[in-house]
């Protein structure tokens, strides 16, 4: 009994830093944000409790559309990232051995040694009207005048896919590496072709990696700010941009906090729907 108590205390002490961290850095700010979000400004310095900030999101098509657009673009980013990352991961995990494997893996990692801002500026240097791609095309005689590649939705997608790649490749490589070659060989041996082995053996095995990669990429894209704003230009229209604008340029913290919560809730809903659709559970994916 005595031992039980002291070991309980020990556990509590052991967990204390984690609990304090969770409480002080995650829970507390959210509680604060929540109270902020249900405060309606009725006049300067006069506030009352109401859901008006939340209603604003649904009543003003502008915000609702922005969110829908952000979500659709993020889903697209996730899908494209998966399509590109899967063959790369398969190649790294299954086709390569030894140093070449480590080399390619580091190559995927390399862009992340510089900050996101620098990476995005890199894309801007490449794609702007007087940039490298445009000048090269002109020099080759493919086009007559300069072409602006920046400030389109496609550019935003390129930037997002690029900055998401690692977060898809890492979980995919690790799940694919855990797939013993003999399963793939058995898949062929029993009459399967490349496509059926991929569908029946490789993808089901990699599913936890696919799902966790997709969740991470989706959330990162949804929450990204720099890439859409810098590459999207005048039409970027990203939901985080709205939150930023409410907080920083409009001083409307109440609205910003409500948008923040809506982002949290709606993105969780989308992830939940995605898990349901792919018949995966979060514990399976993360466990």
């Amino acid at each position: 009994m005595k031992l039980g108590n002291s070991s309980k205390l020990g556990l509590l002490l052991l967990m204390a830093p984690l609990l304090i961290w969770l409480f002080a850095l995650i829970l507390l700010p959210h509680v604060d944000m929540f109270f902020l979000s249900i405060r309606e400004k009725v006049a300067p310095r006069v506030y009352q409790t109401s859901m008006a900030n939340y209603m604003e999101f649904f009543n003003e098509p502008l915000y609702w559309n922005t969110f829908a657009r952000t979500a659709v673009m993020s889903i697209l980013t996730t899908a494209i990232t998966l399509l590109i990352a899967f063959p790369i991961s398969y190649y790294i995990a299954k086709m390569l051995k030894g140093r070449m494997k480590a080399f390619l893996f580091v190559l995927c990692l390399l862009p992340f040694w510089v900050s996101e801002l620098v990476r995005t500026f890199g894309w801007m240097i490449l794609l702007r009207e007087t940039g490298i791609v445009s000048s090269t095309l002109q020099w080759m005689g493919v086009v007559d005048g300069p072409i602006e590649f920046l400030y389109t939705d496609a550019t935003i997608l390129v930037g997002l896919v690029y900055s998401s790649m690692l977060f898809m490749v890492v979980p995919l490589v690790s799940t694919l590496e855990s797939l013993d070659d003999s399963y793939i060989e058995a898949g062929y041996d029993l009459g399967g072709n490349g496509f059926t082995v991929l569908r029946e053996v490789v993808i089901p095995h990699a599913m936890p990696g696919i799902v966790s990669g997709c969740i991470v990429v989706f959330m990162l894209s949804l929450g990204n700010y720099l890439t859409p704003v810098l590459l999207g230009g005048k039409d970027s229209l990203w939901f985080t941009e709205q939150i930023y604008a409410q907080f920083i340029t409009r001083f409307n913290w109440e609205q910003g906090a409500a948008f923040g919560f809506l982002l949290l809730i709606l993105s969780s809903l989308i992830v939940w729907a995605g898990l349901k659709l792919s018949r995966q559970t979060l514990s399976e994916t993360m466990g």
Binding site: D180, Y183, E185, D189, L190, G191, G192, N193
Partner: peptide, 18 residues
């Protein structure tokens, strides 16, 4: 291999776990 009238039982069996 998928066109041969031959099948193989692997060392660790390779039964598909999923």
């Amino acid at each position: 291999p998928n066109k041969r009238p031959v099948n193989m039982v692997f060392q660790h069996l390779a039964l598909f776990p999923m």
